[in-house]
């Protein structure tokens, strides 16, 4: 530090002359291993509300060991806020492990179902689109079909864009679930 240089801190607490990394807002994927006990979900969800962090999606289910559940949480933020999210999550007593899969090589999937309006003329076209997305038609009526699509977020959203023209009557999405690629488990890879 050169003496007398007029330094300041940024509102984030970092000194202006130090490089502020990762200040841009992006999406982060956190995999959170928790004890499978009542109240854990509300502890985690409550934490996000209380600290004013935004959850994009949250998916939760039991793991291979019924004593644990795994939550995949997609959160919007920057490096500093997400660092705080991770630290605060770690402070929740029944949270066992928080893994950040954002920069890691992970497999990300979500499942969505779309109820798309159709008539005899458009039905074929919709089914063709579904086919090209390896999506399944899981219910069919005279005025609507229900299509199930699985994939990463981009794929699901691309499908949605394609069928929007026919009229989407209803949608439901599971939110993202993620696992680390390769031999190592998610809890070993994340940071």
């Amino acid at each position: 530090m050169s003496k007398g240089a007029p330094t300041r801190r940024l509102p984030t607490g970092v000194r202006e002359d130090a490089v502020a990394r990762g200040a841009d807002e992006t999406e982060y994927t956190l995999s959170v291993l928790v004890e499978n006990k009542p109240g854990v979900l509300s502890r985690v969800a409550g934490l996000f509300t209380r600290r004013d962090f935004n959850i994009d999606s949250l998916a939760v289910g039991e793991t291979e060991n019924p004593e644990y559940s795994r939550m995949t949480i997609v959160v919007e933020g920057n490096d500093k806020t997400v660092e705080q999210v991770k630290k605060q999550l770690n402070k929740v007593i029944p949270v066992i492990k928080v893994s950040d899969l954002t920069d890691d090589d992970s497999v990300d999937r979500e499942l969505a179902m779309y109820k798309v309006a159709c008539d005899p003329e458009t039905r074929g076209e919709i089914m063709q689109i579904a086919n090209s997305f390896r999506a399944n038609v899981v219910d069919m009526g005279s005025n609507a079909v229900v299509v199930e699509v699985t994939g990463d977020t981009e794929k699901v959203e691309a499908f949605e864009d394609m069928v929007r023209q026919f009229g989407i009557k209803e949608t439901v999405r599971t939110g993202r679930i993620s696992l680390a690629r390769g031999e190592k488990t998610t809890d070993e890879t994340g940071n």
């Binding site: 530090m1 240089a5 007029p6 330094t7 300041r8 801190r9 940024l10 509102p11 984030t12 607490g13 000194r15 202006e16 500093k80 660092e83 705080q84 630290k87 605060q88 770690n90 402070k91």
Partner: peptide, 22 residues
């Protein structure tokens, strides 16, 4: 915050990791 210890290197000792750089 902007004018807090603007010239200082900061050593922060705390038992709670979430307080560090908060």
């Amino acid at each position: 915050i902007e004018s807090f210890a603007p010239h200082a290197k900061v050593i922060h000792i705390d038992i709670d990791p979430a307080e560090i750089s908060k």
